[in-house]
Design a protein around this nucleic acid. Structure first.
Length: 363
DNA sequence: CCCTCGATCAC
DNA sequence: CCTCATATCGAGGG
């Protein structure tokens, strides 16, 4: 029987906390970090906000205009997202975190897993200590507070880090897993989102205890094989996913909001070509080749569409990317009845860069 | 098996 | 009124 000790770290209200660090006077009032779209004015969404803002009902993902309305009468700050600054702080934090585990897995700018089985000598008491030291270190060196969860697998560690926020430290030992999960809402399981929650709610399934009563057969019918077994196991606190060092991304994509809704090829093309440039730059920097190109769009009614094509050979050429994107854009617009709000390009099926070689060059 | 596309999640 | 980026699954068609 092999058992593990897994830790999950999540930086509290990360982007907004970064802003508070460089301007401490912000701490006393609501702070919203905004992603302004290209439409001007307050078009765009809230990326993150601090807890003061949350008291007024502001949430991430919310349109900026909504948030402003909620904070109308309050002295608050709406700041444009400064990703390179957040990236810098994130990098420093990750460098520290890494040292606390046997294996480190980067999940995102504000999130990471550690396998601390060895470092904790399989003791959850020692693990708790490691968790607290990690929190202290991040706080003293960067001024960032974070929430840490520790459990026997990634699933439990992640649920734990979310359990008490901000500045939380939650430890759930193997024999406590059942009692910890049972009363919680199914939504606390990562992977169960709005849609899944709605469908299960129709069956009167609200708590994880309820979820546990479902037969794998019925889950299979509702959610497909893979999802079903994930949900079945998750409701029982079971998860075997290893903590693994992440290599490069499997895909890169860029999407932007058009200045105005349109279905005019000539109007949209320049934007697509710019996105191609950005992506191709990344591809070259990362020493990659792509074999699949996708053009994706969001329509006026906010539904989305995509068209993709595989290339004969992997490529890293801008011309190749532009050529394919252009054809895909033509195709997708031809079938369009509603207008386009947002347009994006994605490259995938990535491989390591290999110098141009043809069959004949081997002779 | 390979490809395309929509859906879902969650950042 | 509705950002941006990544990963994964399943259906449907070859």
């Amino acid at each position: 029987m092999s058992s593990r000790v897994i830790l999950h770290v999540d930086f509290d209200y990360f982007y907004a906390q970064c802003e508070e660090i460089r301007k401490p006077e912000l701490k006393t009032r609501p702070v919203c970090v905004c992603i302004f779209s290209d439409r001007g004015g307050d078009s765009g969404a809230i990326a993150t906000c601090n807890y003061k803002a949350r008291e007024f009902g502001v949430k991430s993902g919310m349109p900026i205009v909504f948030a402003k309305r909620k904070l109308e009468t309050i002295n608050s700050s709406f700041l444009p997202a400064d990703f390179s600054y957040y990236e810098e702080i994130s990098g420093k934090a990750m460098a520290i975190i890494q040292e606390y585990g046997d294996v480190f897995e980067y999940v995102g700018r504000d999130e990471a897993f550690l396998d601390i089985t060895k470092k904790s000598e399989m003791s959850f008491e020692k693990a708790a200590h490691i968790g607290q030291q990690l929190k202290n270190k991040i706080k003293s060196s960067l001024g960032i507070s974070c929430s840490v969860g520790i459990g026997p697998n990634k699933l439990i560690a992640k649920i734990c880090s979310d359990h008490k926020k901000p500045d939380g430290l939650t430890i759930v030992k193997p024999n406590e897993v059942r009692d910890f999960l049972s009363p919680q809402l199914i939504r606390t399981i990562p992977g169960i989102g709005k849609k899944t929650e709605e469908r299960l709610d129709e069956l009167g399934i609200n708590s994880i205890k309820d979820l546990e009563s479902l037969q794998i057969f019925d889950l299979n019918k509702m959610f497909g094989k893979k999802n079903a077994s994930y949900i079945f196991n998750a409701s029982r606190g079971l998860d075997e996913e290893p903590v693994t060092k992440r290599e490069g991304s499997l895909q890169y994509s860029r999407i932007v909001t058009l200045k105005s809704d349109s279905s005019d090829f000539e109007f949209i093309l320049p934007t697509v070509l710019e996105l191609c440039k950005e992506l191709q730059k990344i591809i070259v920097e990362e020493n990659k080749m792509f074999r699949s190109v996708t053009v994706q769009l969001v329509q006026t009614d906010l539904t989305s569409k995509s068209r993709s094509r595989m290339l004969k050979n992997p490529s890293n050429s801008l011309e190749e990317l532009e050529k394919n994107s252009k054809v895909l854009l033509e195709n997708i617009l031809r079938e369009q009845n509603t207008q386009v709000r947002r347009i994006g390009v994605k490259v995938s099926e990535l491989s390591e860069f290999k110098g141009q070689s043809s069959l004949t060059s081997y002779f």
